[in-house]
Amino acid sequence: MSGHRRLAAGLAVLLVLLTGCAGRDSGGGRTLTVLAAASLTEAFRDIGAKFSAEHPGVRVRFNFQGSTLLAEQIRQGRSADVYASADTRTMAKVVRAQAAAGQPRTFATNRLTIAVPAGNPAGIASLADLARPGPAVVVCAPQVPCGAATQDVERITGVRLSPVSEESNVKAVLNKVIAGEADAGLVYVTDARAAGEQVRAIDFPASKRAVHSYPAVVLKGADHPELAAEFARFLQGTQAREILGKYGFGTP
């Protein structure tokens, strides 16, 4: 009998928790939802703080994921105010799905670099070293922007990589390098910088010929269209540029 009562009490608690989770936090102010590429994480947190400081009562809520995953969620009807992608190809998908309100505008650029563990155990010095047999090289899968950028680099330089693993996002590549599980990885300049002392970045000239841009766009069905447009404009402004530059992004 007491067992039943306990079960009922447990179910009741569960129900309360569930309904509690379903309820949105309503702080009175407006909340801007921004879906952004994972590589923008650190820079956008700072930009969001600046934007909130300039717009009292406005909270910027970010969701950082792989650009392609976010693009697919948008195509499936996920509603948000702004989408910032790590390349134009992924943005084009959102535009083609008629989910964008207006034209995407590029606000930053990025390029690849070679990241090696702090001690550089495999003695990597150039891109050609990655094609040697021996070093365990990890790159992004061609399906995601950083992998597309990797393919661009391979095409431009003629260097054929044979990676031991193709990860689904750039942070996974970086983590393998940090953990010492890979001798080298191709990551964005910004990711290598964010990792600080944990990795060493080895620049290669061809990366400057494979620069790719980060476009942002206001989404159709945005909860706060004007505010979203303002955020998109803010990304083009000097304050945002400064923050992006600090994290290693280039200017368009």
Partner: peptide, 26 residues
């Protein structure tokens, strides 16, 4: 995906292939 990585023919099993492919071609 955490331990073995993801490479076609070697470590990319069907669930990993689904995840990777979903990034570009649903």
């Amino acid at each position: 995906i955490t331990f073995a990585g993801s490479l076609r023919g070697t470590t990319r099993t069907l669930p990993l292939a689904i995840y990777t492919t979903a990034q570009s071609d649903v």
